[in-house]
Every structure is written in C-alpha cells, then in structure tokens.
Nucleic acid binder design. Structure first.
Lengths: 204, 204
DNA sequence: AAAAAATTTTACCGTGTGGTAAAAATATTT
DNA sequence: AAATATTTTTACCACACGGTAAAATTTTTT
C-alpha cells in the first residue's frame, strides 16, 4: 500500500531518471557517479538520495524505464500486410526509437558491454519470446516464398545493429558526417538507405 | 633514444595490455580500475604501475594497439574486382576482426559511448580519409551502374554496425542464441546471411 | 496561524581507488 | 662472486565516491 507521490516527488524523481539516463549512457553503471547525476539533475547528492536510496536503485529505475519503452517499440509492429510493409514498419519503429531515446539506447549498450548482468534477469524470457515470434513470422514468409531463404535471427540482429548504431555510435557518426539523427534530412536518408538495402536484400 | 626493453618488460607490458583490453572492454575507461587490471594481469598494483605510470597511460596504450589493428583491417581490402567481390571481402575482414578482436571492439564501443574524447584526436583525419576513399569507390560503382543508387556512407555504417554488433553485443547474442562468433558454424552462418542480404541489397 | 509532513542542506564517515616511496628480492652484467 | 640494474613487495597517502544523520527549511494540512 503505497502513499500517493507528491507533486515535488514526481518532478524530482523524473529529473533524476533523466539525468541518470544521460550519465549512465556515457559512463555505464560502474563509471557513472551519483555526484554527476545529482549535478545534472540540479540537486545536491543527499537530496538526490532522498528520492533514490542508492546508485543501484537509480540504475535499476533507469534501466526499467528504458526497457519498457524498448519493449513497447518491439511489440508495436504488426504483421498486418506484406513482408515489405512489415519490415519497413519495423525499421521505422526502430529508427524512431534510436532518435527519440538515444541516451536510453546507450544505457543498454553499456549494460550489455558489462555483460548484461541486470538486463539478463530483467528481460530473460520476455525478449526470447518476442524474438521467437519474429523468427516464426520470417520463417513463414520463407516457406510462402515471399522472401529469400535467410537465417531469420541474423536479419533481426542486422536491423537491431544498424538502427542502434545510429544512437550508440552517434559520436563517431557525428565526427564523420557532422550529422546526427536529430537532423531531419540525415534521419530520412539513413532510414531510406537502410530500408532499401534490407528490403532488396531479403525480398524475392 | 630508447633503451632496449628487457625480456620481462616485454612479457609484462603485453600482459597488462591484454588484461587492460578485457577490463576496459567491460567497464570503459572510467569504470575500469587499476586493481582489476592488475589482478587480471596476475600482478600487484604497484608492480603494474612500474610498467605504466597511470591508468590513463594503460588506456592510451590499449586504444592505440586496438586502433592499429582496426585501421589495418580497414585498409587491408582492395578494389581488385567486382563490387560483389570487394564487398564480400570487406565484410569478411570485418567479421574476422569482430571474432579475433572482440574485446578490442568493445573498448572502442565504450570509448565512443563516452563521446570518443581520445579516439577523436587519435583518429581524426585518418578515418575521414579512409571513409572518403570508400565513399568514392562506391560512388564510382553507382555511376558505372554496377550497384543500385544508394547513399554510400550508410552502406558503410551498415557494414560496420552489423559486424561490430556481433562483437559488442555478444552478451545479448549469447543469451538469445547460446552462440558467439567463436562457434565456427554460427560464425559462418552469420557472415553468410549478412553478406547475402547486403549483396542482394545493393547489387543490380 | 499553528502543527505536521515533506524536502533540502550541512556536516560528516568509511571505503575504494589512483598513485607513491622505499625497502626487499631477483636478474643481469662485470 | 661481487657489483649493478631491474623487478617486486610492503606500507602507505590523498582524494573521490557512496552513503548517513540530523538540523534547517519549505510545503501542506488542520
């Protein structure tokens, strides 16, 4: 039986989550410090610890928040129409996520680089199930002769890899192109090229 | 005028670089600790600091070692034959790198997530030049009507993204498939699927 | 307006971490 | 074998970092 969160609580907890996302995205759960997060959130360290009682608790909350958004993204697509439509839609969603939750994507990247100790248990079955579904859909397409015979899991990885790349490695991309996904024109160009190559790559 | 490095020096410096690569790969330059590196290298912290006088120095040495291997990989390919041959060869080389230098790839990933403060200056021009060359080659192919008209830079990013994904996110890949690139069969399957999709994606 | 509850600040503490000094031990050269 | 140079260990130090206690302040309720 939880008491209703006060106005200030709601605001400040979100401030901490936002700041935490930025800092964890850059330095990972180990490299990030409470002081950094507190400063970015615009409050003193003890004040921050009034809302989250430890660094680990902030990290877990950040991971969970990001996770929910990510899972939602993965589930939002539908096998409504043709493979072409479905894949296009899937890539769209993933690109949108990379643009709108770049920091979150990087928090994930850091967590996985650390061996995914938390994500493994947080995601566990859930992701396996989702990937299983996707694999089955793709296998169906192959059986129905709608796409070339490829190993489904690697197509999924390809799409994840490429879309996440634009979020996770934006620092590199920016040095090389001067652009990020925030640049509308660049965003569309990247999405178009990737979609084109993957579609032509798998469609018969 | 450097004095000749002793037998023990050569062995132990390499031990530190190897251990450093592993630890920095997991926790990044900030999250990694000298103690961790020393333990993994099988020596005491002061002993390690006898060979490298600071954490930063270890990190720079690790980055540089990895960078050289990576640049070599990027330069090893040749525009000898057809786009098909060339791209296949390029993907091959990148996959090989991901398998044989997975930890190094992760060190890079961490560095870029941190904003690439060191890599930016270490790579600077070099990478720009290399990418510029690749871009020009691809543009040539398009002009000669050998491949579809795509935006070259995104094709390059795609290949980097996918190949690096298998090294950087191997923890995730392992939970989902139970395999890594060390598994010969999985390695070949991944390479084959990725090559197939990209070739079909760009070839006319 | 007074009382109660929630929030923020100040002043800390123990531990982890980067790094050093100097003695002890080991290798190498003479 | 003695002398010298190199390597390793022991014993530290200062500061960063995670976290706490309690007083001071602000907000909300009565």
């Amino acid at each position: 039986m939880q008491k209703k969160r006060s106005r200030i609580q709601i605001i400040n907890q979100q401030k901490v989550l936002d700041a935490g996302t930025e800092v964890f995205a850059k330095y990972g759960s180990r490299g990030a410090t409470i002081d950094q997060i507190a400063e970015m959130a615009g409050m003193s360290k003890p004040n921050l610890l009034y809302y989250f009682k430890s660094k680990k608790e902030i990290y877990l909350a950040v991971l969970e928040q990001t996770l929910n958004k990510w899972l939602q993204c993965l589930m939002e697509w539908q096998v409504t129409g043709s493979p072409e439509e479905t894949i296009t839609n899937y890539i769209n969603k993933k690109f949108e996520f990379s643009r709108d939750h770049a920091a979150g994507s990087r928090v994930f990247a850091n967590e996985i680089l650390e061996g995914a100790p938390i994500l493994k248990s947080l995601l566990g079955e859930e992701l396996m199930r989702l990937v299983g579904e996707d694999t089955r859909v793709i296998k169906g397409w192959i059986k129905d002769d709608l796409i070339r015979p490829i190993e489904p899991i690697h197509l999924i990885f390809m799409i994840w890899a490429v879309t996440q790349h634009y979020a996770d490695f934006s620092a590199q991309i920016e040095t090389l192109t001067g652009k990020t996904l925030d640049d509308e024109k660049f965003y569309k160009q990247a999405k178009k090229t990737v979609t084109q190559i993957i579609l032509n790559g798998v469609l018969k």
